[in-house]
């Protein structure tokens, strides 16, 4: 009669990143190993609280023995792997991926991506002015969040957060094919008509502000969204007994949006409608 042990013995693997040997736990990704080696890797569709879909391909690295480049986010590190992260091939593919994204999508509210584009010398304008773009209108269908698919890079993160990586609501999915892919409800019905439960987990994982809290959207429209003046305070949700951690983003002594830390074990960045949006009573309610 013995209890099942809580701790598991941890095995490790060692791989070479840019000539430097790094040791990471078994099951870690090549991206984890790159991070452990102190190498900064751009990522767009990757998030620590979601299953990697390896769709954006901006994290690719060169791996000995592999004909093509390898997405570091979704490739498990194995003993003896040799990886290069800054070769001409790697830089070229990263540049092209960023350039491609910039050529079809409004990245004006994605500072990380804009930064990488500058780093890698991406120039989306060389594909001509008449090129096809996402070309979508902003969808404002309720007072909690908006969808601006002109900014969407189709990274699948929102679909995963709505679906089996977090909420299990499946209100949205990838629809269409190829460049016509769009994140959509069935037949593009409005969110209030859909299965959406307004957890806002999709908004939280969006890398380009294509999904945006209405509070942020309104402040941006009014020209009064000032991220540099904002503070972020970590606290705990006031509703049920789960103990979700909240990050209160405040500007001018008012809460302007709520996120949750991805690295916290209680809910790994995910919240429900009450935690995400139920704070407005602090300032006297929605009509204040």
């Amino acid at each position: 009669m013995t209890a099942v042990p809580v701790t598991l013995t941890e095995t490790t693997v060692t791989i070479s990143v840019d000539g430097q040997n790094v040791t990471v736990p078994d099951g870690a990704s090549v991206l984890d190993a790159c991070t452990a080696a102190g190498v900064d890797t751009p990522t767009i569709c990757y998030a620590e609280n979601l299953t990697p879909v390896n769709a954006c391909r901006v994290c690719v690295v060169e791996m000995e023995g592999s004909r093509t480049l390898v997405p570091s986010c979704s490739r498990a590190a194995e003993d003896g792997m040799t990886v290069q992260t800054d070769t001409e091939r790697v830089r070229h593919s990263r540049k092209m991926v960023l350039e491609f994204l910039g050529s079809g999508t409004d990245l004006s509210q994605a500072p990380d991506i804009l930064g990488w584009m500058a780093d890698y010398g991406a120039d989306p304008d060389r594909y001509g002015a008449d090129r096809e773009t996402m070309d979508e209108e902003v969808k404002v269908q309720d007072n909690l969040y908006i969808r601006d698919y002109d900014k969407c890079v189709l990274c699948y993160k929102c679909v995963e957060a709505c679906g089996d990586d977090a909420q299990h609501t499946f209100a949205i999915a990838m629809s269409g094919r190829g460049f016509g892919n769009r994140i959509s409800t069935e037949f593009d019905i409005t969110l209030p008509d859909s299965a959406c439960v307004y957890c806002g987990n999709c908004v939280a994982v969006c890398p380009t502000n294509a999904l945006q809290f209405k509070t942020e959207f309104d402040l941006r429209q009014a020209g009064n969204w000032r991220e540099e003046d904002q503070d972020v305070t970590r606290t705990v949700c006031s509703y049920c007994g789960v103990g979700c951690n909240l990050e209160l983003h405040t500007q001018d002594e008012r809460i302007v949006k709520v996120t949750s830390p991805n690295d916290h074990s209680v809910t790994s960045g995910h919240l429900c409608i009450k935690g995400r949006f139920g704070w407005q009573y602090v300032h006297g309610g929605a009509d204040d």
Partner: peptide, 25 residues
């Protein structure tokens, strides 16, 4: 290829479109 790309990964989804546009232009 533009039509048949599934659209999942960026290089193919966008690359196939830009290639086609370039030839048409």
């Amino acid at each position: 290829f533009r039509n048949e790309s599934c659209g999942q990964c960026v290089p193919c989804r966008v690359g196939a479109v830009r290639q086609h546009e370039l030839l048409v232009r």
